[in-house]
């Protein structure tokens, strides 16, 4: 009995059960990486649909432009673009870790915030280009 009590009071590290795990930047970024990856995967038929609409002719292309340009279409495309940039930026972080770089806690937080900032900036840039292109009809 004393043995088990001693074990339970031993200050051993616990595995991070999500229900009791205090959210922090590093864990949120990690979960978001998987979440954005899943979203990109499940919305990939939209990419095929876009390619199909071009191959199928002017009418289907116009229909696709109409559908993707609708409010729902733009909503999905906005999250698609953000997910892609997020997954890309955080993916670069993963590649750095693979070669053993950037694993110090302070660096993890610094690069984590960079991922948040750069992914938003790239999304914003994409949509500025999109709306500018639409305006000029290029």
């Amino acid at each position: 009995m004393g043995y088990y009590l001693a074990m339970s009071t031993d200050n051993r590290p616990l595995s991070p059960h999500l229900q009791v795990y205090r959210p922090q930047l590093t864990s949120l970024l990690s979960i978001t990486h998987r979440g954005t990856g899943m979203f990109l995967a499940f919305s990939s038929p939209v990419l095929v649909y876009w390619l199909w609409s071009i191959a199928a002719g002017a009418e289907s292309y116009a229909a696709a432009q109409h559908l993707l340009g609708s409010n729902l279409g733009r909503f999905v495309l906005f999250f698609w673009s953000y997910s892609l940039f997020y997954h890309l930026c955080n993916g670069v972080r993963h590649l750095a870790w693979d070669i053993g770089a950037g694993l110090e806690i302070t660096t993890l937080y610094k690069t984590g915030w960079w991922v948040v900032v750069i992914s938003f900036a790239l999304t914003l840039l994409t949509w500025v280009i999109g709306y500018a292109a639409r305006g000029t009809g290029v």
């Binding site: 673009s81 890309l88 994409t126 280009i129 709306y131 292109a133 639409r134 290029v138």
Partner: peptide
């Protein structure tokens, strides 16, 4: 995918309304 997807997204964005 780093260069390819950046190229793809910005290309498609510039083709909006074309």
């Amino acid at each position: 995918l780093i260069p390819l997807s950046l190229w793809f997204v910005f290309s498609v964005a510039s083709l909006v309304g074309a």
